[in-house]
Structures are given as C-alpha cells and as structure tokens.
Design a binder for these strands. Structure first.
Lengths: 181, 181
DNA sequence: TTAAAACATGTAATTAATTACATGTTTTAA
DNA sequence: TTAAAACATGTAATTAATTACATGTTTTAA
C-alpha cells in the first residue's frame, strides 16, 4: 500500500484557516477567492468532502448553528490533534519550487519572430488583465491592512498579499518591456 | 453531453512543440523539464496517452525510426489539421490569470507575528532554493541564446525564458526584503 | 414588494495529473 | 569491461480537481 495522502496540501490549508478562527465551508471557499487563491486553488466541491474527511480523522469538529429562521451552518474548528498536525506541517521544510500554469506565456512560446502580428495584441490583452488584477490586490491591501496594527496581528497574511502585489507589478513591467511604444 | 475536452491545454502545447520540429514522446517529456516546465507541468505518463489521442484525431502522425541495433522511436509530426488547431488556439484570447501553487507562501500565511522563530529559517531556506533556480535559468539563457541570431529564430522561447528569470529575480528580492540583515 | 445576489451545503460525473509498475536499449564515464 | 545514466515507450492504479447537478435561505438593492 502506498503512503496514503502523502501530499494533499489542501487539508493543511484548511487546518490553518480554521486555526485562525472557526469557520464554515462557505467561509473557507471565500478565502480561496481572495489571497489564498493567489497561491492555491480549491472549489467548494473539493472543500466540503475534505471537511468530512478531516472530521472523520478527528482533526476538526463542527458545531451546528442557525442564521435567521432556518439556514443551517456548520462552524468547524480545530481539535488538538488538528492543531498538532498543522504545526508539524508548517515546521517541515518546503523543498518544492512554485508550480505555475500560465496559458498565455505558453502561447508566447509558439510565436517564432518579433514581427509576428499576433504578438503586440497578445501583450496588450495580458497587460490589461494583469493591471486589473494589480488594482484589485492593492485595493485589498488598503482595506485589509489599514494600519500597522492590522499588519502586526496577521503578519503572514500581510506577507503573502505583499508578495502577490509585487508579482503582478513585475508581470506588468515585464509585459511593458516588450510592448511597442 | 458536455463539450469534450473543453479545456485540455496539454494537447496544444504538444502541437506547438511538434510544430517546431518532429519529436518523440521522450523529447517532449524533456521539454517539460526545461522552460516549458516553468509554465506548465506534465509527465511522460500523461504525454504518451495524449500522443495516441492526437494521432487518433488525425492531428499528428508518426514515423518509426530505429537507433543503433533495435531501439524503436516514434517521431511525431503535425498534420495540416493539427497545424490549423494550433493556430486557432494561439489566436484566441487568454482571459485566465496565472494559476500558482506555492506551498511555502501558504505556510507563511499561517505565521501570525513578525517574531515567530520559524520565520527567518523559512525565508533563508526558500532564498537558497530560488537562488539556485535563478542560477540554473541564467545558465540556460547563455547556452540556448548565445547571440542575437538565436533570439531572432526563437523569439517566443526567448521571451518565456526571460520571464522565468525575472520572476525568480523578483522572488529572491522579495525574500531578501524580509530577511533580517 | 420583489428580483437578484449572496449565503449555505452537498453529491455525481468527468477529467487531469501523479505515482507506481513494467520493460528494454544505448551511451558515457569510471 | 562494466555499471550507471540516459534514452525510449508504455499501462495501471490512485488521487486531485473541475464541472455539473441539486436544493434551499437570507439579504440587499431596485
């Protein structure tokens, strides 16, 4: 039998998010639509089954709550076993490089010459896309981290948002380097 | 019935690589270990079945060759239908942002304060990893593109290698920004 | 007051991707 | 001369991930 779930990083991300505060599957899904999504992707159809798995393994538990008249919610939180597993994961080395999938850059690879008429429109299109994403991330930064106190309380969150912003800045700079002026 | 293979970008990458020159599955696998791998990942166990699929669809063909006494190779090349499909893919817009998976950045997210004793060793470890990758990519650049003529013949390839190098440079710079000096 | 958006939770079917299994040849360096 | 590395091609089993299906509640803005 192969080592079960040898990788499976999603479980650790969920443990980490629940360590910050108890949350519902819906809340976790939203987290992947914000900063987390810049460095890992998951949809609710992957998250809900994982929550069941983690609960079955005794690493999280849930409490049923109701909003309004009858909207049922499950508020999940870490057990001591779950917390231990999270700490172990954060502590171990991360020897793997960033895995990137970028369809646009791939298309670029198949442009043979600098005067290909498709090149400039492609660069323009991507520049617009990444400028919009950059503006979005900068907006997030001012709302999520309005002052130094907010940074001090969620330093790691601040770091990854800063990283995402710098990445987009450099992506746009790179595109502009090859944009005809 | 859902649109079959609506996404499936791997097939286009293979078509693009075969458009440059006829190649074997082994050659394609090697391409994913170099620059292509910076922007898309695939193993031979995904590539060989895809080659069969593309051939069955009439988009590529192969020619059997033998190296030495009896080592059989299949040299794949594009058919006109395959070339058409490749051109259509390159021409259509690429509205999706880069998908990134970075386990280290995720771990950082769960570091709550600037004085967490795990922070600096984590940053150091990643800096070493990315500096090594950067050195590797720069080495590639000098060997693959020794002069302007090489660049002019494979401009897209030059662009993506340049992009990969800048990305690693900025990653290292970002890590150093938070490294205690 | 009402329609749309957001909140909330799940499963089924399919596809993508990795890891492991399986086998053999040729070249290179010790 | 020989062992290791690289070349070469595949399939099986498993896991990861997406898309589609399925259903209902609450809040917000027109």
């Amino acid at each position: 039998m192969a080592a079960i779930g040898q990788r499976n990083r999603l479980q650790y991300i969920i443990l980490g998010l629940l360590n910050q505060r108890p949350q519902t599957g819906y809340d976790l899904t939203k987290a992947f639509e914000n900063e987390i999504g810049e460095f890992w992707q998951a949809k609710h159809s992957q998250i809900y089954p994982m929550l069941k798995r983690l609960e079955a393994a005794g690493e999280i538990t849930h409490e049923d709550t109701v909003t309004g008249e009858k909207l049922a919610k499950k508020q999940y939180s870490l057990t001591p076993a779950g917390h231990e597993k999270l700490v172990a994961w954060v502590t171990e080395p991360s020897p793997e490089l960033t895995a990137i999938k970028d369809e646009f850059i791939l298309k670029l690879y198949f442009i043979k010459t600098v005067d290909d008429p498709r090149l400039q429109p492609m660069l323009q299109e991507q520049a617009a896309l990444h400028r919009a994403q950059l503006a979005h991330l900068r907006q997030r930064q001012t709302t999520v981290f309005p002052d130094q106190g907010a940074i001090d309380q969620a330093y790691g969150h601040y770091l990854i948002l800063d990283h995402a912003i710098e990445r987009e800045e450099h992506y746009v700079d790179w595109l502009e380097k090859y944009l005809a002026h």
